[in-house]
Design a protein around this nucleic acid. Sequence first.
DNA 1: CTGAAAGCGCTTACAG
DNA 2: CTGAAAGCGCTTACAG
Lengths: 342, 342
Amino acid sequence: MKPVTLKEIAEQLNISVTTVSKALKDYPDVSKKTKGLVKELAKTLNYKPNTFAVNLRTKESKTIGLVIPVIVHHFFSNVIKGIISQAEKKGYLVIILQSNESYELEKKHIGLLLSQRVDGIIISIANGTADFKHLNDVIVQEKPLVMFDKIAKLVKCSKIIIDDRKAAYTATQHLIDIGCKRIAHFRGGLLPQNSIDRFLGYKQALIDNGMAYDPTLVYICELGDKSFEEGKQNARQLLHDHDNVDGIFINTDLVAIGAMTEFKALGVKIPEDIKIVGFSNWFMSSVISPTLTTIDQPGYKMGKTAFKQLYKEMKAIKNKKPKKSTIITLETALVKRESTKS
Amino acid sequence: MKPVTLKEIAEQLNISVTTVSKALKDYPDVSKKTKGLVKELAKTLNYKPNTFAVNLRTKESKTIGLVIPVIVHHFFSNVIKGIISQAEKKGYLVIILQSNESYELEKKHIGLLLSQRVDGIIISIANGTADFKHLNDVIVQEKPLVMFDKIAKLVKCSKIIIDDRKAAYTATQHLIDIGCKRIAHFRGGLLPQNSIDRFLGYKQALIDNGMAYDPTLVYICELGDKSFEEGKQNARQLLHDHDNVDGIFINTDLVAIGAMTEFKALGVKIPEDIKIVGFSNWFMSSVISPTLTTIDQPGYKMGKTAFKQLYKEMKAIKNKKPKKSTIITLETALVKRESTKS
DNA sequence: CTGAAAGCGCTTACAG
DNA sequence: CTGAAAGCGCTTACAG
């Protein structure tokens, strides 16, 4: 079944293509009668405008691109959901690409999206990305670009973030408030900005409370597929290295749950012996035993906000207005649960 | 910065647009010298063909649509990953839409994708979908359509599935083999085909082994956001209703983990008192304690296979060959772990 | 080996 | 109120 075109409608009605096009778009300079006829026939023929032609004329694709490090990850799939739900409301479709934390792939994907002429791009950058030329390419082409979560400070575009430092500070302060005297930290990798910021928040809280910062209490997790395993290993290592730790702030709930599993197996009681705060508020955190105190990281909202900002900028460009870049910081919240009961 | 067009290259080189186009596509009837000049200039000007124009001419978008019930779900995000990775290899982009298990949304999304003129559609249908007109629309338009996981038997298109019945049979048989005498089943909703098939596999295994099928041993879970909770509740209910159950086959690992959590809390020992087999092989299953025996459901592979099949059909249609629908059944495997140690 | 011309299906400035 | 015409940027059958 070949798709119906404006031409066919015009021929059947013995009027011009121009008039058909205008009638369908409710131009004021078409008679009511003609509009009625056109719309009726369009409906019975099940006419759908050819997007390719429309795109070519309007130079818009009504499509945006999304590049994320990993799809199979609770936080990111929530972000995806937020972006898609919001995009749909505005009639935009979303093309999703996964960088796998690789700079090369990320670069390639940006190129693909650009040549596909998406109207805008949302990205959370890969851990492997240290060069930002591909991102500046987007900006040079005057395409709106919005970053979220893992951002590049040096690229001039809008960013949707949380205050990682403050959130980490809050988490650590909570441990201090409930009486922890020696607090460890399981951090993320050395490169990603958010793992750096969370570490700094932890450190600052210690210092502000007059507690010594001890580097040997900081353990690193790469947060790849093995997060859970890393949590277990670090927990074991911690017990081996120290005997007086009574609180841990752990970057990522999954790592924290791994650690709790290991502590339980080794007879260390949570929260009696060691109190734990995680990060992200993964749904399992409220469900395991003991339930895990954590920082709620609003993935869904982040996705929604990212699209809203992108939409604003796409609209500005369309109307030849200057687009303004902003940085939006979403609120996080400390969710107190059993793992920090005092 | 306005994108470069063929025309500009042609003007700078004082040749025709036709020749430029042919040179870039390596037509044999263009001189080597001209090709060289064109390609060089194209490169320095950073020429990228305008996809809109190409689409309009070739009637292809090199884009496919994917409609899934939920994105934030381990199985589905694995499928997404599989589809995207495979699509990328063939130069296809993937637009993702979420039906939220709603028939209305699913219908709307199919319409969107069709009017966007994607080259093909992959779908796992919503629980709420009982009418298939929107899917037949896709077929009428001669667009390839591939279903996976949750399929509609009545729609004539390719399907990528697992043998749910057989997998469930294997799971139940395993419980019988290790000595369980009274086996319960936590099933999914009453509508989805796969939850029906899994139930039937369970029942058949009992009958084939001369064990009585007892409907009071079958509990229902809707498998929405509350899977874990449902597992806990059913576990409690089961203990209340029966005192001699020694094995359970549970549809979905998440429900199983909920059940195990509750059993643990109530002092029921797994596997000593009750042995449990889950379904899906979620990564947490290998990580909790005791580790959970389960049926491995190959999400990533399912995604890859779905795209491969779609690609075959898109190619067939492009070459005006008849496209053939097939049903591909992927292998599942029983993964034995601690929850069924005898 | 090169290029003029038609056409994909739409939109819109302009004329009547 | 209606329509002829130009054009978006490309591809390709055809002529030379």
